[in-house]
Amino acid sequence: MNPIIQVKNLIKKYDDLTAVDGISFDVSKGEIFGLLGPNGAGKTTTLEIMETLREKTSGEVIINGLSIDKDQNAIKQIIGVQLQSAGFYPNLYLYELIELFAGLYNVEVNPDEMLKLVDLQEKKKSKFKELSGGQKQRFSICTTLINEPKIIFLDEPTTGLDPQARRNLWELIKQIKSKGTTIMLTTHYMDEAEVLCDRVGIIDNGKIVIIDTPDNLIDDLIKTGFERPKLLKLATLEDVFLNMTGKELRDN
């Protein structure tokens, strides 16, 4: 395995609060790595340090062989960043926003093709604020792909979306992975991690509790004799919901 991201003993302190407390992990090229954890566990802080948006207190982060201490600009050119709650320049149409980011990344792109990747080509003359929640997230992901990044960071990409939109986004994320892009995402939905992630790290109170593949983690738990208090039915309420409302994306 060839790690494209190496995080070693990363610490971030705010005054007397330690948000990230000695985190270490590697992410291999081409995998989807998920950081799981409850709200306030330090997922976003960790991600933002890796995205060079936040200063770390100590530790080391190496992305594609570049250190975030020295080569911030070089790193920014090979990563795509989707922020948990990003804003886009007001009053601009989607294709103009794509052009703006193309300029910011110094690349030539065809806005139509970019929007087609995330199935928004019909919305090219809409403004960001007019989009639905799922469309906003898809557009946000679209802007991360403009510079054909080696790694993309997705911070809670599906939070607040309906089940159809979540599934739609999962497909998009899988599609991006199939092109060889490494993806690092955070989520607090376990079903999402189970479906998407090759490996997950569970983070709590700023510390990594465990890192492994979702399958191994579940098997290990079962080996300890764990049993669900209520045996799972063959379907969940979400399955019922999707069955009743259809799997198609409700965009408009």
Binding site: L83, G87, P90, L104
Partner: peptide
């Protein structure tokens, strides 16, 4: 509106 933050994530 976090527009600047998104800009900071690009190399400018």
């Amino acid at each position: 509106t976090l527009v600047i933050k998104r800009f900071f994530a690009t190399p400018i």
